[in-house]
Simulated assay, not measured.
Amino acid sequence: MNEDQFKGTAKQVKGSVKEAIGKLTGNERTEAEGKAEKAAGKVQDSVGDAKEGVKRTIDRI
C-alpha cells in the first residue's frame, strides 16, 4: 500500500463518517461535504492503484 492509497482510504472513511453524521443530524451541508470527501478519497485511492501498477510493471522489466 502506497501513501496515496493510504490517504485515499483514510479520506473515504472520514467522508463516510461525516456523511453519516450529516444524515443523523439532518445537516445537508455536512452530508454533502462527507460525500465529496469520500469521492475525493476514491480518486486518490485510484491514483495510488495506478502508481502501484506502474511500479510493478517497471519492476518486471
Rank of each mutant, 00 (worst) to 15 (best):
E37S: 12
D45E: 08
R60C: 00
L24W: 06
S16I: 09
I58C: 11
L24H: 07
S46D: 02
I21Q: 11
K18M: 06
K38A: 02
K38V: 01
S46Y: 07
T30A: 12
Q12T: 13
Q5E: 04
Q5H: 06
V47K: 11
T30W: 09
K35E: 06
E3D: 05
A10D: 11
A20C: 03
Q12A: 09
E31A: 15
K42Y: 10
K38F: 03
K7N: 07
V13M: 12
D59M: 10
K18S: 11
G22F: 04
G15P: 04
I58P: 01
A50K: 11
K23L: 04
A39R: 13
A50C: 02
A10I: 11
V13P: 02
T25R: 14
K11G: 00
M1C: 03
V17M: 02
K35P: 00
G22Q: 08
G53F: 03
V17R: 06
T30H: 13
E33W: 11
A40Y: 08
V54A: 15
M1Y: 14
A50L: 09
A10S: 14
E3W: 10
T57A: 10
I58S: 06
K42E: 10
G53C: 04
K23A: 08
G41K: 03
S16K: 14
A36T: 06
Q5C: 02
V43N: 11
D59K: 15
E37I: 07
I61Q: 10
D49W: 05
V13W: 14
T25P: 05
E19D: 01
V13G: 05
V17C: 01
K38I: 02
K11A: 06
E31R: 13
D59N: 14
K11L: 13
V13R: 15
R60G: 01
K55D: 08
A36Q: 03
D49Y: 08
Q44P: 02
T9M: 07
K51M: 06
R29K: 13
K55T: 10
V13K: 15
K38W: 03
A10V: 11
E52K: 13
T9K: 13
K7P: 00
K11S: 09
G22H: 08
K55E: 11
G53R: 13
Q5N: 03
Q12M: 11
V17Y: 03
